[in-house]
Design a binder for these strands. Structure first.
Lengths: 223, 223
DNA sequence: TTGCAATTCAAACACTTGTATGAAACTATC
DNA sequence: GATAGTTTCATACAAGTGTTTGAATTGCAA
């Protein structure tokens, strides 16, 4: 195993460079230069560039997923196997938002890296994301238990919309700040989480009919 | 101006290839081969690869934005300068969703291209998206007129969440289908639009306090 | 037809990319 | 301190990229 120094120097440098400049224009040569390491070291320690990226992403997303499940499990145990829907949603989007938002100058490299990964979506990362379905199914299950009257379809749509709001807010946080001229405070992470959870809860608990029957007259008018 | 044949052959081939295989692994050589055209033609007619991509994206997004504003204007005129919030949201997300979802086999090349653009986000496209803020401000204005009691902050958050649900659903439509084992029907575009509009409307009209005050006790518990 | 501009073409250019190689340097074990 | 295994290093490789060039061709007007 030896010193491991080179390995972790590469990981740190790569994460920082990718976070700062995106996957698009950071080359292996940039990384090894920043890490003060030989070019061949990347292939020696990681096999390939894609495996390096994958390792960075996996590390971080495992941490997030673990935190999510920890919150979920704690909530369900406390509620005797059934947690309130707000708390489930909180466990779903909280760790991600907490990990990626917050005051920019004190945002960790890891957080900035994950934002990049969310924006740019390179192949090795896409492959990993596709394996996340099993993880999401656990949340779908908890949501079903919390809302036994709700159809599966509604559950999945609610899950989809919750993730949508969280991820889009992360991806487009800069644009939202600009659009709102700073009125939307993306640094107040707990407020952002509360907003997402609140809307997602409404989506999941509102009268079933409303969600499915559009105001047809209005919709047709606008055509 | 001459024949223009080469120019449009390139545009068509590029749009199809990018739609099918993504920006990542389509080269100029692939495009000119598909268009039966000489390699140098791209630079001759468009200046550079990035300008070709930009032209493709601008064309489509101008069409979408025009459609959005047409619906918005029609609705506001009909309501004497003030349209119902549902209709405004419908005008905002309808054209995009209608353009990108629907039965896969009858999805237009343009639609599939726009999905790619939404997923991969290459530099020339990102640059254009950043100029979309003025367009969104028009919708923020209409929403303010529809909900004069609402604070600007809430308006912008509602706008953000509406776009979030629409775009995320497009980006991750495949994953949602898989996750729900086909139960969520992404081909029924009008139903998807209705769901997004419904949730966004709730987000914008629900009691103001709920949105800001999280169930603090529960949130703390889960930590 | 002649002349001139617009277009097309084959070829090469100039670079960058990730990866592979094989020798050198190091490290720990006996 | 010799040896075996690991790690580092300079260097080269092979392939692919967008772009440029300058000559050939085309189309159209005088």
């Amino acid at each position: 195993m030896a010193s491991d120094h080179t390995r972790s120097a590469i990981l740190a440098a790569a994460e920082r460079l990718y976070a700062d400049r995106g996957f698009g224009d950071v080359t292996l040569r940039d990384i090894v230069a920043a890490a003060s390491v030989n070019l061949a070291a990347v292939n020696y320690h990681f096999g390939s560039k894609d495996e390096l990226i994958a390792e960075l992403f996996v590390t971080r997303s495992i941490a997030t997923n673990r935190e999510r499940l920890r919150e979920l499990k704690a909530a369900e145990e406390q509620g005797g196997g059934r947690a309130p829907i707000e708390v489930i949603l909180h466990a779903l989007v909280g760790p991600t938002l907490r990990g990626c938002l917050g005051p920019e100058n004190q945002r960790s490299t890891a957080a900035r890296f994950m934002i990049r990964a969310s924006i740019e979506s390179v192949p090795p990362i896409r492959r990993i994301k596709n394996r996340e379905i099993d993880h999401l199914r656990k949340f779908a299950g908890a949501m079903r238990r919390a809302l036994p009257d709700r159809s599966d379809v509604d559950i999945y749509w609610g899950l989809n919309f919750a993730l949508a709001m969280a991820h889009h807010t992360i991806r487009e946080s800069e644009r939202l700040t600009k659009l709102s001229e700073g009125k939307c405070d993306l640094d107040d992470v707990e407020d952002v989480i509360a907003r997402v959870v609140s809307v997602a809860t409404m989506a999941l608990t509102a009268g079933r009919n409303e969600a499915k029957a559009p105001p047809r007259a209005l919709a047709r008018d606008a055509r």
